[in-house]
Amino acid sequence: MITIVDYNAGNLTSVKRALEHLGIANQISADPEVVRRSERIIFPGVGHARAAMEVLQTRGLDSALKEAFGRGTPILGICIGCQIILAHSEEGDTPGLNLIPGVCAHFQFQEKGLKVPHMGWNTVTVTQNHPVLAHLKPGDSFYFVHSYYPQPAEASHVFATCDYGFNFPVAIGVENLFALQFHAEKSGPLGLRVLENFARWTPC
C-alpha cells in the first residue's frame, strides 16, 4: 500500500488516479501515524514551499516523514516534494526537511529571455543509473511546471538532469528517498512507468 501524503498541496488526486490506473493499492492520508507506519510513501505537491512546510509542521507530517526516511521506507517526492526535502528553499526563504543537503533555487533568466515558470515537455537525461528511472532512453521527455529547481550539495545525489538555459538536476535521491522535479503523473506512459518502477523498488 502506497500512502500519498496529504498536506493541501494540489495534485494528490492526479497521483492517485495514475496509481489506480496502474492497479497499485494506495491511500491519501494526512495522519502522521499512517505516514510513519506506511510501507511506501509518495510525497507530491504543487504550490508554494513555505505554505507546504507550514502545513507539514502543523500536521506533524514533517517528523513523520523524517522518521519514515530514517527507518528505510521507500519515499518518492514529486515537484514541491522534490524541493522541500532539501535543507532550504529560496521560495519564501523556507527551511526544508533537510533529508538531502542542498538548496532549492529560483530560475534567473533575465538576460536569456527564457520564460519562468519552466512549463511543458522537456528532455530528461539520466546521469546516474537508478531503478526508478531504469526504462529511460536518451531523448525521453517529461512534463514540467516549476519556477524553482533542486540543487543538491553533492553530485552523487543527482540522478538526472534537464536543459533549460543550463543543465539542472531533475531527479535526486539518497538511500531510500528518490525525488522528481517533473510530474510523472502527467507525463504519459513514460511517466506512469516511473511510478510503477517506484512501486516495485526495493532500496538496498
Binding site: S14, R17, Y143, P189
Partner: peptide, 8 residues
C-alpha cells in the same frame, strides 16, 4: 478523461 489520460 482524468481517469484515463495522463497528460495535462
Amino acid at each position: 478523461v482524468a481517469a484515463q489520460i495522463f497528460i495535462p
